[in-house]
């Protein structure tokens, strides 16, 4: 496991300069527009993009064919991608959270409890996104997966709009309930991530190289 994570970090190392450059730009932008949430959302999305880059590097080099000749279980190869995703999410969160809190302190946009609930929701969204992206990449490969993800997002958006036009939307629950739900949303996102891991292992075990 450690070996696989090391390899992925070495692969990302060449991009580290760009990562820092983009994070610094976004931090600067945050103070300029006085909205820390943009910083958090952009950097977490950036973390997700890093995971997709790792899949792209692996695919370009034919890594999976070679990795499966090494003494790793298939589940271990997949687990390393999920752990990498979580490490990136947590790492980025720890890196940008102080700036988000400070920016919010200066701009006084949100109260503390509102801020925490928004952070929880953004992190959960990022994990949910990873839960869909990783098995799709494993099942279809990078080229097809992009098209599949586009079709899924497109169909979902229009499908939702179609359904909402047809039915009467019940009124939203009170803001306090939504806030309480947002605090536990990362737990549900993590459960989804575990399910996604199980599905990814199944896909990977069925694959031939």
């Amino acid at each position: 496991m450690k070996a696989l994570l090391l390899k992925d970090f070495f692969s990302m190392k060449s991009q580290i300069k760009w990562v820092f450059f983009i994070v610094i730009c976004v931090i600067g932008m945050t103070f300029f527009i006085r909205d820390g949430m943009i910083l958090l959302a952009i950097t977490l999305m950036f973390g997700t993009i890093q995971v997709t880059s790792i899949f792209a590097f692996d695919e370009m080099s034919g890594w999976d064919k070679y990795a499966n000749t090494l003494p790793f279980r298939k589940s271990e190869i997949i687990k390393s991608k999920y752990i990498l995703s979580l490490l990136l999410t947590v790492g980025i969160l720890l890196l940008v959270c102080p700036f988000v809190v400070f920016s919010n302190y200066v701009s006084e946009t949100f109260k503390l409890n509102e801020l925490i609930s928004i952070i929880c929701l953004v992190v959960s969204l990022s994990i949910v996104l990873l839960s869909f992206i990783i098995p799709t990449f494993i099942k279809f490969g990078m080229q097809k997966a992009r098209i599949v993800l586009f079709i899924v997002v497109f169909s979902f958006s229009y499908g939702m709009k179609f359904v909402l036009d047809l039915i009467t939307v019940p009124s939203l629950p009170p803001i306090e309930t939504i806030q309480r739900m947002s605090y536990v949303s990362p737990i549900f996102a993590l459960i989804l991530l575990v399910l996604s891991y199980i599905i990814s292992v199944k896909f990977y075990e069925a694959k031939e190289f």
Partner: peptide, 22 residues
């Protein structure tokens, strides 16, 4: 195989670190 299947930004030094954990 007929080609090296490591991501091409890795060096021999980094591959050593990876393989000693493998």
């Amino acid at each position: 195989f007929d080609d090296i299947h490591f991501p091409d930004m890795l060096s021999a030094q980094q591959i050593n670190k990876f393989l000693q954990e493998t």
